[in-house]
């Protein structure tokens, strides 16, 4: 029974990963690509390792899978945040449909 639940979570994770990578291809500029890919791929990888945890139960491998889940949830937003800030500072423009940009005033004031 545990194995079936584990395979179910792994399947959900794989589908989320695939949708995130489709978003990486379809969206028009860097920031929207970051949005799509970060959210979907974080949940996808965590889903896969949650499935591994269910499959093995409370053994050494299952606890290591839990450690990976905590680590990915903590670090993936940090790295996406760093990439977004670096992209803005290196001068990547936002796409044409974008509406407002409050961040530009702050950057000009800091200079």
């Amino acid at each position: 029974m545990n194995e079936i639940i584990g395979l179910f979570f792994i399947t959900i994770g794989i589908i989320a990963d695939l949708i995130g990578c489709l978003g990486l291809v379809r969206f028009p500029d860097v920031y929207t690509r970051l949005q799509a890919s970060t959210k979907c791929v974080t949940l996808g990888t965590c889903g896969i390792f949650f499935g591994v945890f269910f499959y093995y139960g409370f053994t050494i491998i299952g606890l290591k899978a839990l450690l990976i889940i905590i680590f990915v949830f903590l670090t993936s937003p940090v790295s996406s945040h760093a990439l977004a800030k670096a992209a803005y500072k290196s001068g990547v423009k936002m796409c044409q449909q974008s509406v407002c940009d409050e961040y530009r005033n702050y950057k000009e004031r800091i200079k």
Partner: peptide
């Protein structure tokens, strides 16, 4: 959030209106 983003990715005309707010 995942259901929301998946809807935006898979719909044919991509309902996005991005911007940076405070």
């Amino acid at each position: 959030a995942n259901i929301d983003v998946a809807y935006r990715i898979l719909s044919p005309n991509m309902p996005i209106k991005p911007g940076i707010v405070k």
